[in-house]
Structures are given as C-alpha cells and as structure tokens.
Amino acid sequence: MAMDPSGERDWAGQWDQMFEVLSAEPRREIIRSLLKEPQERRLSLLEAAASPNQSMDSETLAIQLRHHHLPKLAEVGYVRWEKDPFCVQRGPNFEEPAFIIGTVVDSIDEIPDSLINNCKIFRRMTDDDTN
C-alpha cells in the first residue's frame, strides 16, 4: 500500500485493501466470529471460518485457510493466528473490518432481500429476528 512522505497510509488504498480482504466468505466469517468474543479470546479456526454456505470438508478448509485466507488477514493486522493449536484471535487492526462486518450485521433488517435470499447466514439471522 502506498505511503506518503509523512508515513501515512493511502486512505483509498486502505479501503480497497480492506474490501479485497473481506471479499472471501471464510475471511468474513472469521471476522464475524471474532466480533462476538472478547479481544484476548482465541477461537478454533475451523469453527470460526465455517459457514453453512460452504460445502467443503475440514481438511480442504484448513489448507485454504493456512495458504490463502489467514496470510491475507494477518498481513494487514486484522487477526493473529497459530498453527498449533489451529486458532485465531483479533489483531491490532481488527477494528477496521469489524466496523464493516458489524455494521452489516447490525443493519440486517435494511439489507435488500436480493442479498439475503441465497445466503444461509443472513437467512438465519432474519429468521431469528422474526421469532
């Protein structure tokens, strides 16, 4: 990401990077899972990244997490993770993606139906609100 002479990060690049990192469901699920937990709490990665929208076995998910998703999240400081035990916790910049994911979750009733209908996570959330 571009830095100006004062050492400031390029604000547009920072937003672009955040949306790129949040573009994959396992990464969004990790952030969403961590939102519910205290800062110091560690979560099992397979549980934190699992989604009813995904149909992959845990071994495949673990490989994708280790080699693709976790490096992207950790590189920008959104999470810290460990290989053994395979767990994740909030990183120093967690508040950035937490703001976006938290705003979406808090605004579930305002999300257009076209974005909710095929998403099992959002459907569960809206079903829970009506019960």
Rank of each mutant, 00 (worst) to 15 (best):
95 E>M: 14
63 I>L: 07
60 T>I: 12
41 R>K: 15
54 Q>Y: 02
52 P>S: 08
15 W>R: 13
107 S>K: 09
74 A>R: 06
74 A>L: 04
49 A>G: 10
4 D>V: 09
111 I>L: 13
74 A>F: 01
95 E>D: 15
112 P>L: 05
36 K>T: 04
84 D>R: 10
25 E>T: 11
35 L>K: 10
40 E>G: 05
117 N>E: 13
74 A>W: 01
55 S>A: 13
26 P>G: 09
112 P>Y: 11
6 S>R: 10
29 E>A: 10
45 L>E: 00
26 P>I: 04
81 W>L: 05
58 S>H: 12
11 W>Q: 12
125 M>N: 10
75 E>F: 03
23 S>P: 03
4 D>N: 14
82 E>K: 03
45 L>R: 00
56 M>F: 01
92 P>T: 12
109 D>Y: 02
12 A>K: 14
2 A>W: 05
93 N>M: 15
84 D>P: 00
15 W>T: 05
16 D>C: 08
101 I>Q: 07
55 S>N: 12
53 N>M: 06
57 D>Y: 07
71 P>C: 08
101 I>G: 01
94 F>A: 12
88 V>L: 09
44 S>K: 06
40 E>P: 00
96 E>C: 02
35 L>V: 04
20 E>M: 09
17 Q>N: 15
87 C>A: 15
111 I>N: 03
118 N>R: 14
62 A>D: 07
65 L>V: 11
128 D>T: 05
131 N>C: 08
12 A>M: 06
94 F>D: 09
92 P>S: 09
51 S>H: 11
117 N>I: 05
74 A>Y: 00
10 D>P: 10
126 T>Q: 11
91 G>S: 04
129 D>Q: 13
67 H>S: 01
12 A>W: 00
105 V>K: 08
100 I>W: 14
106 D>Y: 01
51 S>T: 14
89 Q>V: 05
35 L>S: 09
84 D>M: 07
123 R>H: 07
60 T>C: 03
42 R>T: 04
72 K>N: 11
2 A>Y: 07
116 I>A: 10
24 A>P: 00
104 V>R: 14
75 E>S: 09
27 R>P: 02
99 F>G: 11
72 K>Q: 13
90 R>D: 03
116 I>K: 15
59 E>N: 06
114 S>I: 14
77 G>D: 08
64 Q>N: 05
122 F>V: 02
36 K>Y: 02
117 N>W: 01
25 E>M: 11
104 V>Y: 09
110 E>F: 13
91 G>D: 12
108 I>Q: 12
43 L>F: 03
34 L>W: 00
24 A>K: 11
97 P>W: 02
31 I>T: 03
81 W>Y: 14
76 V>C: 05
51 S>L: 07
44 S>V: 10
101 I>W: 06
75 E>R: 10
77 G>H: 06
97 P>K: 09
101 I>Y: 08
86 F>C: 00
80 R>T: 00
2 A>T: 06
63 I>G: 00
5 P>N: 15
9 R>P: 04
115 L>G: 08
62 A>R: 15
65 L>M: 10
125 M>C: 06
56 M>C: 12
97 P>Q: 07
